[in-house]
Design a protein around this nucleic acid. Structure first.
Lengths: 209, 209
DNA sequence: TTGGAATATTTACAGTGTTAAGTAAATTTG
DNA sequence: CAAATTTACTTAACACTGTAAATATTCCAA
C-alpha cells in the first residue's frame, strides 16, 4: 500500500504548508490578519482548498496553539539538568516570562484566546498540552516541598505560581503595564525582578539552620 | 443658548442609547456578537447613524471599558471604611476577583482586549481609569508598609499583587483552570484561597512581638 | 481508453466595518 | 413668511470576512 502512504504524506505536507503560512501571517501581522484568503494566497491555492485540510479556521488556530506548546517545551528541554528544584522552578518561571514576551501571538493562543478552548470542548477532549505543562509545574513544586524549599498544598501553590507569572506576562503583552514600566526594554527585567520577589517570599527561610 | 444645550443633551441621550444597546448585546451575547448592525437594530436606527455618535466600533468598546471601571469603583466604594490597610488590600483583591468572575466581558475590555489600549495610543492620551485604579492599589500597599504589615518596594509589590490577581481571574475566565478547578462553582472559593495564601506569604510575621 | 475517485476551483451566501451620496426635516436668515 | 442653510438620518455601496455547494480538473486503476 505504498501509494496510500504517499498520499497520506502529501496530505500532511499540504497541512504543514497551510500551518506554515498561517504561522507566518500570524507572527508577522498578528492574529486578526490571518484570514483564509491570505493563507490561500501564500500557499497559492484557492481559499476553499484550505477547508479540505482543516474543518474550519479555529482548527488551524488550535494546531498553532499546539505548536506553541512544542516551542515552549523545547525552551524547557535543558531544565532537567538543574538539580535544585527551587532553582528549577525559578528558571521555569523565567523561561515562561521570556517565552510570553518573545512570542506574544503564540502566548495569546495558548493562554488567552478563547477559541482554542472552545474547539477542545467541541471535540470533547481535554487540554493535553496544557495539562502536561501544568503537571510538570506541579511535579517541580511537589519536589520543592519534599526537599524542604517550599511548604503548603502543592496544588494551591502551583495554581498560584502559574497565575502569578501568567498575570505578569499577560498584562505586559496587552499593554497594561505602561504605568508601572514605561520603558519597553525594562519589561523583561522588571518581570524577572517581580518573579524573584515572589519566590523569595514563598521559600522557606533556611537561615535559622 | 437654550437650544444648543438641548441639542447637546439629545446627542448625549442617543450616545447613551447606543452604549446601552452595546452593553446589552455585549453582556448577554459576548464580545463577538456586538455588531454595528445589531446595535442599530436595537436602537431602531440605521447602522450608519451609529457613526454619527462614535467614530468607530473601537470607540464604543472604549466607552464600555470606561463604564467597566466605574462599576468596579462602585464595588470598592465602601472599602475606605476598612481601617487596617492589609485587610483593605485583602478585600480589594477579593473584590477584584469577584468583579472579574461576575463581569467577564467587562473584565475582558478593561484588562485583556487589545483594542481599548490601541484606541488610547491612537488618541495620544493615557489610561486615566486604569492608572487611577493602580494608584489606589499603590497607596494601599504603601500604607501597609508604613504600618509595618508589608515590606519591600511598594512599586514592585503593587505590580506583583496586581499581576497575581489578574492571573487568577484571567486564567479562570479564559477556561484554563479546569485541570486545577474542575467544578465551576469552586472557582471563586479556590481563587480566594489562593489570594489568602499569597497575602499570608508576603505579610510580615508579627507573632514574634 | 474509460470510469470513478480524489482534489481543486468557481461561484455564491450571509455576514462584517465603514464611507459616500442622497433625502428630509429643522433651523437660521433675508 | 419664504428661501437658504444646516442638521439628522437613510440608502446604496465597497471591500472585506468565513464557509458551503456545485463544478471542474487531475490522477490512477481496470
Amino acid at each position: 500500500m505504498g501509494i496510500l502512504e504517499r498520499k497520506e504524506k502529501q496530505k500532511l505536507e499540504i497541512r504543514k504548508l497551510i500551518l506554515d503560512a498561517s504561522m507566518k501571517l500570524f507572527v508577522e501581522e498578528g492574529f486578526s490578519n490571518v484570514t483564509i484568503r491570505r493563507i490561500a494566497d501564500l500557499i497559492e491555492y484557492s481559499p476553499t482548498t484550505v477547508y479540505l485540510y482543516f474543518k474550519d479556521k479555529d482548527e488551524i488556530f488550535f494546531s498553532l496553539h499546539d505548536i506553541g506548546f512544542q516551542k515552549m517545551e523545547e525552551m524547557n528541554r535543558d531544565l532537567v539538568t538543574i538539580e535544585n528544584p527551587l532553582l528549577r522552578l525559578h528558571k521555569m518561571g523565567e523561561n515562561y516570562i521570556e517565552f510570553g514576551l518573545q512570542n506574544p501571538e503564540y502566548y495569546n493562543l495558548m493562554f488567552i484566546q478563547e477559541e482554542p478552548m472552545k474547539k477542545l470542548s467541541e471535540l470533547g477532549c481535554d487540554w493535553v498540552k496544557g495539562d502536561s505543562a501544568i503537571s510538570r509545574l506541579k511535579a517541580t513544586v511537589t519536589e520543592c516541598m519534599e526537599k524542604g524549599y517550599l511548604k503548603g498544598d502543592p496544588h494551591l501553590v502551583s495554581l498560584s505560581v502559574w497565575s502569578f507569572v501568567h498575570g505578569l506576562v499577560s498584562l505586559a503583552i496587552r499593554e497594561r503595564m505602561e504605568k508601572f514600566i514605561p520603558q519597553k526594554e525594562m519589561i523583561l527585567p522588571a518581570l524577572k525582578q517581580s518573579l524573584n520577589w515572589m519566590i523569595s517570599n514563598i521559600e522557606i527561610d533556611n537561615r535559622s539552620k
